[in-house]
Design a protein around this nucleic acid. Structure first.
Lengths: 149, 149
DNA sequence: CAGATTGCGTGCGTCGCGCACGCTATTCTT
DNA sequence: AAGAATAGCGTGCGCGACGCACGCAATCTG
């Protein structure tokens, strides 16, 4: 493989992981969804949407955060009505974090916004090129330098 | 364009922007490069490598940070010998931040590490597929939802 | 039934960040 | 040419996020 392929991807990834890029994207995704959902609380919503109802400790492992941080963010989201705590029926000392209807809608909205943004920026691409790019990006992310270990 | 293309890319980007993914990648890139270079100070090194010697205020705009933060990180890097402050010959009240030889080497090392990681994860790809993926990713990042405005 | 264990919330120290102030060097104005 | 205004820089301060560790309640164990 020619070396410039690696360099080109490295440039792109570098730009992608910049602070400003993340901040701009999160701002566009979480705007007008209430004060509680922002760059810090959204990973809790998103992670909970992926895992389904689960404990704060498990969710902490999922999103790479300390359990205390998850608890605090969950409290903020609970006060905003996006998330609810319900007792675990199998273990009465445990508490399950679960999305409310509003919370699920919020996740759905942000997700749709991201899809819309992506499709808009791919509008001028040949369809089969966009499709192959999607597959390759998916493969690269799941098997590449970002796999969990 | 089919809607699942947008969804597939959205999934990949979501995974890419996770906290854990960033942390793991930065750890692999900046490991064994001294105590001063880590996830917070590296953007200063990298940005300075892109812009060349410039003031803290300009670099702040480049990496999306407040000027005071750049000053503090620059001080840490200066104490570690990776960066030096030199008076601006054109404006004697200004101070230019510039990489030392060691600093340039550090940037070069991290960059080469990233390229190596990328090429390793693309080793099993057909070369022309890797090449087209690199071009498409570059195009997507520079023209997509991450462009500066 | 008593002790060990698990899960949870919270206080505390630390760190990064943005704002705003003071200081110095430079540039403008009359 | 001298005082005023401006630009650039470093730093003190408050705020918020994070990880660690402690205390409390519920559960498991012998």
């Amino acid at each position: 493989m020619p070396d410039d392929v690696g360099h080109e991807i490295a440039d792109a990834l570098g730009a992608l992981l910049r602070r400003g890029a993340r901040a701009r994207l999160y701002a566009r995704l979480t705007g007008n969804l209430g004060e509680a959902v922002d760059e810090t609380t959204y990973p809790v919503l998103s992670g909970l949407a992926r895992t389904g109802p689960c404990s704060a400790a498990d969710l902490a492992g999922e999103i790479g955060l300390d359990r205390s941080g998850v608890t605090r963010r969950a409290t903020r989201l609970e006060e905003a009505g996006l998330l609810c705590r319900e007792p675990d029926p199998d273990d009465r000392r445990a508490i399950l974090l679960a999305l409310t209807e509003t919370g699920q809608q919020a996740v759905q909205i942000t997700r749709q916004r991201l899809v819309t943004i992506i499709e808009a920026s791919l509008a001028s691409w040949p369809p089969e090129e966009a499709q192959s790019f999607a597959h390759q990006l998916h493969r690269f992310v799941t098997t590449g330098p970002f796999a969990k270990s």
